[in-house]
């Protein structure tokens, strides 16, 4: 049995596999950097991304998965062997007579750190397959939108107040958002969310983090020639003159001119979509109105509200990560003790 364990946990094979993982990650990093259209600059770990659909450009990742499985197996069996040698007092196959620092501490450090790595690899796999992230946008006071935002698996969230703290130059230091949560179990909780300080639930398995939060135009009010008023909430199609108008937000052009951006679906049965813009500031009259079927619409008012932008995270493996971190700390402690041995300097010729 011990021979089989030694064979599967062979150190030489483990060393080569690990270097394979290093080379593969380096190659993957280059592939990602040179294909920014495929790999977003900032994205979370998700297995689905690499498998829906399977693409040749992800080959490095598929190889990585195989290598990490091999590495996990190699680590498991080599750790098992070390555990057995710790229990039985045997030297273990990694013992080398020329190695001058073979100690019990080394074995303990190896077992703890390797076990932490194996658990972290497993946790990554679970998170990669079953973890979920979801963008959360909540408008303070509702303002035409649902005040309570649904977060699947957690419940509902509402923003109550916000406070921006700034540096002396006016740049943002922090944003403190007071929020309420109606949890799935029916309880209500008040939480404060700020940068680096999310709202944590279920022992940190679920969290709501802040990404941004500021005042945005959430609705635009248009006026036609007959003084009819139309309120268009953000991203909510509104029927106008037989067609449908959808306000997409305020954007800046290349020349830094602010415009209200709309998508117009014509009511002539063609279903044809058109992009339309209206200047929000000073400019020629023809650019300050939107014309459709002989009627021109102009901006009467824009309504602003604070929008909380964040992310709801579900990580079912966070408990495993906590165990991994705990084991790592103990392993690091024993590793640190290894360095108490005296170093015999062999000073070379000056």
């Amino acid at each position: 049995m011990i021979k089989i364990i030694r064979l599967l946990g062979n150190r030489k094979a483990g060393f080569i596999i690990t270097m394979g993982a290093v080379a593969n990650l380096a190659a993957g990093s280059l592939v990602m950097n040179f294909n920014p259209e495929i790999y977003p600059a900032f994205f979370n770990f998700s297995m689905e991304f690499f498998f829906t659909p399977v693409k040749p450009v992800h080959t490095w990742f598929y190889i990585l998965i195989v290598i990490l499985f091999l590495l996990g197996g190699s680590l498991f069996f080599s750790t098992l062997e070390t555990v057995i040698s710790l229990i039985t007092g045997e030297k273990g196959s990694e013992y080398d007579s020329s190695s001058r620092y073979y100690t019990r501490n080394r074995k303990l450090a190896a077992v703890l750190v390797h076990a932490a790595i194996i658990i972290a690899l497993g946790a990554h796999l679970i998170d990669g397959f079953y973890g979920r992230t979801m963008r959360v946008q909540a408008v303070l006071g509702g303002n035409g939108f649902d005040e309570w935002v649904e977060i699947p698996g957690l419940g509902r969230m509402r923003v109550n107040t916000f406070e921006e703290i700034t540096w002396p130059d006016g740049s943002r230091m922090d944003l403190v958002v007071r929020s309420s949560f109606m949890l799935s179990n029916g309880s209500r909780e008040e939480r404060i969310i700020s940068y680096n300080s999310p709202a944590l639930f279920n022992s940190a398995m679920r969290e709501v983090i802040i990404q941004d939060g500021r005042n945005h135009v959430v609705a635009i009010i248009l006026l036609d020639q007959k003084y009819n008023v139309y309120k268009l909430p953000l991203n909510r199609p509104v029927k106008i003159n037989g067609g449908t108008l959808n306000f997409q937000g305020i954007f800046e052009t290349d020349k830094r001119i602010a415009v209200a951006y709309f998508i117009l679906q014509k009511g002539d049965g063609s279903g044809e979509m058109e992009e339309r813009y209206i200047l929000t500031g000073a400019g020629p009259v023809q650019h300050k109105t939107l014309n459709y079927s002989g009627i021109s619409y102009s901006i009467q008012k824009m309504e602003e509200a604070f929008i909380f932008s964040g992310m709801a995270v579900y990580n079912p493996s966070i408990f495993l990560i906590m165990i991994s971190v705990g084991l790592s700390f103990f392993g690091i402690y024993f590793m640190f003790r290894l360095n108490n041995r005296p170093i015999s300097p062999e000073k070379g010729p000056y």
Partner: peptide, 20 residues
């Protein structure tokens, strides 16, 4: 990372090279 970005690991070049 978990508190700020919702993940202890992201597919970010610096993070990948740190793991390397």
């Amino acid at each position: 990372g978990y508190f700020a970005w919702g993940a202890y690991f992201l597919w970010d070049p610096k993070l990948i090279w740190s793991v390397i």
